[in-house]
Design a protein around this nucleic acid. Sequence first.
DNA 1: CTCCACACGGGTGCATGACT
DNA 2: AGTCATGCACCCGTGTGGAG
Length: 352
Amino acid sequence: MTIQDATSSIPSKRSSSALSMAPRKKVSSSDPLVFHGRHFGRTVFALCNYPSLLTNGILRLEQMEDTPLEDFPAEEQREHRVFEQLLDSYPGLLERLKGGSEEEILHVGELVGKGAAGARGDDTKTLKSAILDWISPKGEAIQPPLHRNSKIDRGFNHELTGSLLCPAGLDWNDPQTKENLRSGEMLVCGDQWPIFLYAHHIYDPEDPWSSLLRSRLLTCAYKHVFTSPSSVDKEPKATRSGNARLHGMNSVTIASIAYIATQVRFALSSSSVFSRTDTTTDSETFYHSLLDLLEDPEESQEVDELLTWWNRQIFPASSAARRPISANSALSKIRQRRIALKRAAVLDNIHS
DNA sequence: CTCCACACGGGTGCATGACT
DNA sequence: AGTCATGCACCCGTGTGGAG
């Protein structure tokens, strides 16, 4: 399915409403860019300010005439790769930015950002309740009970969510550790990964890759978001298309795994508001720390194996014939070349 | 105070399988 | 073939709390 196919099916029920004489362009929800932003946030990059991503991206293209991308700070390099992926994933976007004013660039960023934020909010909302079904002991109720619509008792306040959120390498069963985590005396940062990331919640310090990002909790949440809520624990009752199909997605992405892990971590926590800048939940650091590992070229073999494993879990029908795209593959070379050509086109425009 | 980002309840229309 | 029921993604309005 192409982008055009996907976006042409967006309901246009509100397209005729309220495009009034606002001084600034209205961020219309029915714009295909919002729809695209939903998927882009879930699968490529979730936590960023899209208007500045675009302005910085255009600006950086100009700077890159003198300074190669490798000389920029790591954070900017990542932002730029996201920028290029956005250009690459939406036909016509480059031309739109080329021909657009500064305000138009900001407007495009707002549309994409609105989609990404909307999808994220919808996901946190539905996962908040659904996650309790996945962490309950088989056939039993959670003791003491956890509320579906309140998170106040979650996090380290509860035995079950506490044990799942306990950083790998620490022993939740140690009373002193437990007390320190509960009281907040021991502060958990985003780069201290919780044990729920590991299959069967077992971390092996001798082989840290062995079960990382292979837990059932993660695959449940992934299916809930990407295939459909009903596909999690039973044969999916074939109904309306799920997100993956709606967006023509037939393999997992690195960022989508990090996104789901971040959502699960937040759902288990006691925080009621998802905020990038919130230092206690530290979701942004967590998300970035996962991306740091998964995008590291030195880890590409393990990451390829991980993606193969994930594709078998999520897309069993189509994963047999597919090999993961490694960092050095021919396809990636082709992409790099295409991006270079686009960059040249943008520079042309800036200078003309 | 305003502004902003977010949570949350609830509504809408679409796609699909089941049924007549 | 037509109709119905249901699961689903998406969207809106409103309330809230934090930052400036």
